[in-house]
Design a protein around this nucleic acid. Structure first.
Length: 308
DNA sequence: TTGAATCGGCATTATAAGGT
DNA sequence: ACCTTATAATGCCGATTCAA
């Protein structure tokens, strides 16, 4: 414990009670000991803070000036200690995670709900970013960890797989392809395909996986978000290839999904975090909750929608 | 292990204020 | 002027800490 802080606390107490005797009692200290603390503080500051006679104590001009500052100092110190304790006990805090929109929408809400029930005072900042931006946010430290797709491997990133999911075809139920049980990628080349931008993680994955096909699909419309492409499909503008998790529900009034094969393209979603930095206690708890959900919900995301 | 520095407590002193 | 009382300051000593 810092001696000077004790001295300042002693000064405040004497100033408040205008008595060494009473202040000493209040501080569980003998009066001579308190006398010495004040004297020490005054010698450090080089000026008397308290004007005392044997019968009364009052503040000197300097003491009156110093009092509010000292009070604020001690209050802030107490407050800081309180906060640090609360942080350590997971009573307060904030975590920031960066995840791709699909994850943010489809499987994080359940995890967040459970986490929030257990740690109601920990705020969650959810950055729903593209795969690239999300990875950048984790690398820069803006986010403590993230949920992203596996794309190459960055030396500073640790990837923990959570779910593998296939890309599926989405079309309107009145579209010719809706009559097929499954659709090959080559078949798509004759249809108007709605795809996401060239820099999107999904698009890069698809371009890579499909590069060996002789009849590659060509993207007729290009959008930024999967949800936009779904909307365009709904409007009858074309068909889209999307990760299965981004499909709203099994029973959509207008949209149907069909397996996309030859080849079967899958993406792996998982947790990303920096290799070199430890997570905060609050984030650790969140990751625990997340992984627990995945043990329960199943890594079988490739075979069906995930129940949470 | 030891010696210096520092803190706190007990006993005591010094002194201001009030009463006679 | 002298006594009493209340209270801060000081002397002294033991305990603890820290560095050599």
């Amino acid at each position: 414990m810092n001696y000077e802080l004790q001295q300042i606390q002693a000064f405040l107490k004497v100033a408040e009670l205008e008595s060494f005797q009473a202040a000493a009692q209040s501080l569980n200290l003998s009066q001579p000991a308190l006398s010495r603390r004040i004297k020490k503080l005054e010698s450090i500051l080089g000026t008397p803070l308290l004007a005392r006679t044997t019968r009364s104590v009052s503040l000197t001009t300097v003491g009156r000036d110093f009092f509010p500052q000292a009070k604020r100092l001690v209050d802030e110190f107490d407050h800081a200690l309180f906060n640090i304790r609360a942080l350590a006990e997971n009573r307060i805090g904030q975590i920031t995670l960066a995840c791709i929109p699909t994850a943010a929408f489809y499987f994080l809400p359940a995890v967040i709900r459970e986490y929030n029930a257990r740690y109601p005072n920990i705020r969650i900042r959810l950055l729903d970013l593209s795969a690239n931006d999300g990875l950048g946010a984790v690398l820069s430290g803006e986010a403590e960890f993230g949920i992203n797709m596996l794309s190459g491997h960055h030396p500073d990133i640790v990837f923990t797989p959570l779910v593998v999911e296939p890309f599926v075809l989405v079309c309107r139920h009145d579209h010719p392809l809706a009559a097929h049980d499954s659709v090959t990628w080559s078949e798509l080349s004759t249809h108007k395909l709605i795809g996401v931008g060239k820099m999107s993680g999904n698009r890069m994955l698809l371009d890579h996986e499909l590069s060996s096909l002789t009849q590659r699909p060509t993207w007729f419309y290009e959008v930024q978000h999967l949800s936009t492409s779904l909307g365009m499909v709904e409007a009858g503008l074309g068909v889209a290839a999307v990760p299965r998790l981004s499909m709203p529900d099994q029973e959509h009034p207008l949209l149907v999904q069909r397996p996309l094969v030859e080849p079967l393209v899958k993406r792996t979603l998982g947790m990303v975090r920096r290799r070199d930095s430890a997570l905060s206690p609050a984030a650790e708890r969140f990751v625990e909750t997340l992984l627990k959900h995945w043990d329960k919900g199943g890594v079988e995301g490739s075979t069906g929608p995930i129940n949470l």
